[in-house]
Amino acid sequence: MKKQDFKLFPGTYLQGKWNGHQYKVIRKLGAGACGAVYLCHNLQGEKVALKVGKDSSRMMLEVNMLKKFSKVQGVKLGPAFIDVDDWKAPSLQVFPFYVMEYVEGVPLSDFLRGKSKEWIGICTIQLLTDLEHLHKAGFVFGDLKTDNLLMSNSKVRWIDVGGVTAIGRAIKEYTEFYDRGYWGFGSRKAEPSYDLFAVTMIMLEMVQPNKFEKGAHPRRTLAAKLASSNDLKPYHSLIAGVWKGKFQSASEMKQALSYIVMKRAKGTPVSRKQIKAQKHSSDWGELLALSAVAGVFCGFSIFSFWI
């Protein structure tokens, strides 16, 4: 028996059959292979994101992941989990749904528009920081792609944890453009380095939003794209290194990237002695700036927690 498609209009109330919680649909946020996500209000009038679909097993696997990663070691990875239930539509068909934190943000590409090039490095470092935590918890993100990221309060957040896979297993879900297997750069085993490859593709996309196909010589296609992207120049050897499998963990890649980001902050060429003297101070300056930014993020989240 096939389930009919459904449509939820703004103003519709949706009540769970098991837990009984009620949600009011505000608007549709997006749709994908597995269902649609709506912005809703809960009974208290707070904004939440509600995903409703047809494949209840798949939805439940996503819920299990959300629960696991709403908070890992005190770090928020992915939206917080709120509720899971079934909804009996007026047609009497039952649709599974779950409710999570609404992540208010903009797509990465919108965020980067008009911003200085430093942000490429900074966003990537943020992404790698979250991956570091995820990998330490024994999982890889899997379907890491721009579509699954939002910039919220100048901080990158991921929103779709459907592809998160335990390390050592087969990647559950992937998108060809970000998949190292597609480009001939390795297996589809869930290893930290699988995510790192996707990170480099996101970096490529940050400077040149048009996707491209692999052609007859995938590796050559990629190398040519990289060589032709001037805005990524500082990261060329880093990215090539990732492709060669030089980095086994998000921490290693982040360290290498941080080094580049710091170095780039230096001004016009100066004598060697000065460089040596400056190196540390400028590093410290950047670090201070970064931690100030980080402080602001924390401030934000504490603030949003309070209201």
Partner: peptide, 22 residues
């Protein structure tokens, strides 16, 4: 069937299915 189970039980069963598939 799996989809008719209460969410808490369903949550465990889908993990079993996932493990078997792997």
């Amino acid at each position: 069937s799996i989809e008719e189970l209460p969410p808490a039980t369903r949550s465990e069963v889908v993990e079993v299915v996932e493990d078997l598939g792997e």
